[in-house]
Design a protein around this nucleic acid. Structure first.
Lengths: 187, 187
DNA sequence: TTTCTATTTTGACTTATGTCAAAATTATTG
DNA sequence: CAATAATTTTGACATAAGTCAAAATAGAAA
């Protein structure tokens, strides 16, 4: 849990009382590679802090899996649309490695928001941060060619290439596996 | 200002005191078509509520303007990356019509966050909302063909087609103006 | 209206990327 | 280590979308 605490303190100072409540609400979850945190059609009731391992979010388009994000250590993950809107989502979240996570339920989180201003603030700041990350990624991909998107990825987050099968990376980049393979061979 | 108040009450109830502070911090801004709210290289110090009119966010890529969002009535707009991170941004925000906006500065907003829990909550909820909207758009564009992206746009937000020049819409969709024109002629 | 400007469409051609199928390579596990 | 499964690469070909240039149309201003 220490990794979670230092992660959040990095963005927003949290008082001792709030921290204690937060710690009390968290549940340690350990799952094997291949397991799912949520699947299409379900309402996602938890947000997770990923302490160890990596995972992907994907959805189904015309029978194909489209991976649209990866998460690695020290990040919060959930099916945001579903978690926030309280409606069934279209996303699947699947572990790409054995993972250690800390889970907090929607109700507990709302309770913490109501009780601790520090945590409400943390929630806001985390959402700002995630919004900006998504926007940066959006801009990084918009109107660029596949080769350039791949090179950006390889430079910015080379660890993805080590830990994730190429097929998932291709769909993340919005291209087919064959095209990605060809891009890589001509480097 | 009534439109702003009813907009936010829709998502989160705000107490009278907080509402009064908020109203006091807002400044009415009226600008003509073509004006800019922020430009590349500047740190954006305000968030705006768009009461009337429409505008676009764009950035420069290899000398070309890339429009990546539009905003219409009853939405908050700013250069989020710059506003949140307090660093110079790459975005330009330009009015596509004469607009009426309500502005609040970064410092005033932080002050309101610190003073009113309601407003901190509003901030969090708005950021959740904007995150989900961005994510939905991301998913809507990912891995689909240009014609399909255009048809989604025409169905979901037909008013864009009435109010925005085609060239901007093309770059928003990630295609050239010529391709968009051909898609439209074959409908 | 007429003129001038901005926007949109069309044409000819090039290029990037997709599709389908098969081969090669790399991991996994009995 | 051998056998099986998963992943990655390669080939041949089809197609969506880009580029550059010019024409057509619509809008704004005189």
């Amino acid at each position: 849990m220490q990794s979670l605490i230092s992660h959040i303190q990095q963005y927003c100072p949290i008082g001792k009382t709030a921290l204690k409540s937060l710690a009390g609400a968290l549940q340690k979850v350990e799952l094997p590679k291949g397991a799912f945190l949520t699947t299409e059609g379900k309402t996602c009731n938890h947000v997770y802090f990923l302490e160890q391992g990596c995972l992907r979010g994907f959805y189904n388009l015309d029978g194909k899996d489209i991976t649209y994000w990866f998460a690695f250590e020290n990040n919060f993950v959930t099916s945001f649309f579903s978690f926030i809107s309280r409606k069934p989502g279209v996303e699947n979240i699947q572990l790409l490695e054995d993972c250690t996570l800390w889970a907090i339920s929607y109700d507990e989180l709302q309770h913490l928001y109501a009780k601790h201003t520090d945590i409400e603030r943390l929630g806001r700041i985390m959402h700002e941060r995630y919004y900006v990350m998504l926007e940066e990624r959006f801009v990084a991909n918009h109107f660029k060619e596949a080769r350039e998107r791949y090179e950006n990825l390889a430079t910015a987050t080379p660890h993805i290439l080590q830990r994730v099968p190429l097929g998932y990376i291709a769909s993340y980049l919005g291209i087919t596996q064959e095209t990605l393979s060809r891009i890589r061979s001509k480097t």
